[in-house]
Amino acid sequence: MKIITNGLFKNNPTFVQVLGMCPTLATTTSAVNGLGMGLATTAVLVMSNMVISVIKKFVPDKIRIPSYIVIIASFVTVIDMIMHGFTYELWKTLGLFIPLIVVNCIILGRAESFASKNNVFKSFLDGIGMGLGFTGALVILGIVREFLGNGSIFGLQITNLKLYAMILPPGAFIALGMLAAFFNYLGTMNLKKKKQQKEEK
């Protein structure tokens, strides 16, 4: 359980570790796109984490990074084909960013720092936690951008107030910057609270 919450909140890959920024910025034009990208990445992350933790003993240290990349790339190809077959519309909007899951630093980062040191079950949990943390961040950013830019959430029209800039590239940077600042603020507030509690004791 601790492993899952570690990925979800404490070491959230997007807001805390600032990894995997390219898909975060590029695919969050709407909440649905963000969710799709997040889930695709989660699937690749969970499977590659498991496989890597199984083979960790057989892979010589010197060629471990290339072999991890091949494993990740194979799973990405599988996901790419599945999405092409079953969710064609989403596949078309995400486009280039599906094959680019290969170079998402979160996946290689987890393989190197977690899966290559822990057993299969723990690696599986870590994949789920980190993946959902990433998905959550993408969905939050997607919701914010879709609401401000298109007046809707998950395609449901709410207002007619539309700030088109939020869907365009500059909006992505600014929205993510604001959210990161907000999470920083929450983080510092938490620290202050903990300090106060300690002092009271």
Partner: peptide
């Protein structure tokens, strides 16, 4: 301001830069 130091302010700067490239 404190929470904006580091990455957040960098991202917002990038946003403004990107706006000019638009």
């Amino acid at each position: 301001p404190g929470p904006f130091k580091g990455i957040p302010s960098a991202l917002i700067t990038a946003g403004i830069l990107s706006m000019s490239f638009m």
